[in-house]
Write a protein that binds this DNA or RNA. Structure first.
Lengths: 224, 224
DNA sequence: TATTTAATGTGAACCACTTGACAGACACGA
DNA sequence: TCGTGTCTGTCAAGTGGTTCACATTAAATA
């Protein structure tokens, strides 16, 4: 029915919802109509309890005795995660990683379009003016203007680590509501701005630890 | 003193250790000699209790009344995480992302060298033979040979999502002990192989949710 | 050497998340 | 239409991680 985020929802639940959605999208593409908490659990490598519990935070989506309709549950998860609307994005930092992200073809992966790049930014005058996917790289000074005119919701920070906090500050000032931070540092931002971290070097280091300590095998994922 | 991983150590603790290590490395570079749980906590955006508890899983590294010696604690964390040795790595999938990773300059970031690329692989004959950072791209069939001769510890999977499980299977067969998976899918691998996920699209989707539900502001990180 | 100060290390309390078990509800078949 | 089987939704129990308070210990100073 309606969105009813109770008192609190585990962080890990959100990560898993993203995984369930991915599985459902694949099932749908394969032409499967029905599924169950058991099957979803197997694919996501969690328990069936967990799947049902995760879904229960947001409502009732199945029919007892029958399981879930793939199409319906996929739609519901998409709605819950906010992926039934378009999210306007910008990239800050047009180094190698920023360019790769700008060129990434998979932003509009589902039937409903999800993420759209509205601007590319760098501080280096040599980078300004470059064209990527039909978008011209602008100077960081023009960020605020772009955010206002295009209603930008979120930004990806792909600048060198020592510039990441500056980028976050500029984004805050410009009025962005969420940041996906690829720089290996903990950003300081105001309460109202959501931050998610994507850090592959940290992943490598965790991996090193778990290879050395196999008995502490990761019990769950999170993410990122 | 010695590594003494008790019964179990929280997953999140390992993620935080990586962050503490990063902070200590920066402090050291800035010439700071001493620090405290309070200061580390502030930088890592966790509580001082948490810092001390996390460290306590592995031993005693500070002096009461004084705090921690940056140099010592940095070394200890490096040892705990297994970053005082070299890790031999390969990349599977020489698409855009694989190439960017191969070209990444920061693998040897600390005084002790940590990660070293020993091979690059792809299934596409057009990619085989390419040179990146002085390494020649090989066909996936030569993976096992490379793993054996170079004592490869871990691999990065950067193939398209539908090929990721095949890559994981090949790596398992070749005898790799850890996988950093960039493909948006949950890999099925044997118990003994550690897997860490790096998934920026999942990060974007979580971000969308948290922008829509600001009151559920992420209380901690885990990265992924 | 005694005293003071300061910040660690840790056992216990607390809280949140996961696991479990089962009642409830729906579809299907007779 | 009634009975049966099945799988969801959820309340309760258990586990694991975080928070807390404080005793402990080391350095500095007189």
């Amino acid at each position: 029915m309606s969105q009813k985020p109770h008192l609190s929802i585990p962080n890990a639940t959100i990560s898993r919802l993203v995984i369930y959605l991915r599985i459902l999208t694949t099932l749908e593409r394969e032409g499967t109509n029905r599924t169950s908490s058991e099957l979803l659990a197997e694919q996501a490598q969690v328990s069936a309890f967990q799947v049902r519990k995760d879904l229960a935070y947001f409502g009732r989506f199945g029919t007892r005795g029958m399981g879930y309709t793939v199409l319906t549950l996929r739609r519901e998860l998409q709605r819950i995660l906010g992926l039934n609307r378009r999210w306007n994005c910008v990239i800050i930092g047009m180094g190698r990683l920023g360019q790769a992200l700008a060129d990434y073809p998979g932003y509009m992966e589902s039937n409903l379009y999800e993420f759209e790049l509205k601007g590319l930014f760098d501080i280096d005058p040599h980078k300004v003016g470059m064209q990527l996917r039909g978008i011209t790289v602008q100077h960081i000074n023009d960020l605020e203007n772009c955010v206002k005119t295009h209603n930008v919701d979120m930004a990806f920070i792909t600048v060198p680590v020592e510039k990441a906090q500056d980028a976050a500050d500029a984004l805050t000032k410009a009025g962005v509501r969420g940041i996906l931070n690829f720089a290996p540092t903990v950003l300081e931002v105001s309460e109202e701005i959501a931050v998610e971290q994507v850090d592959f070097m940290a992943g490598m280091k965790r991996l090193a630890f778990y290879i050395l300590n196999p008995h502490l095998k990761a019990l769950k994922e999170d993410e990122e």
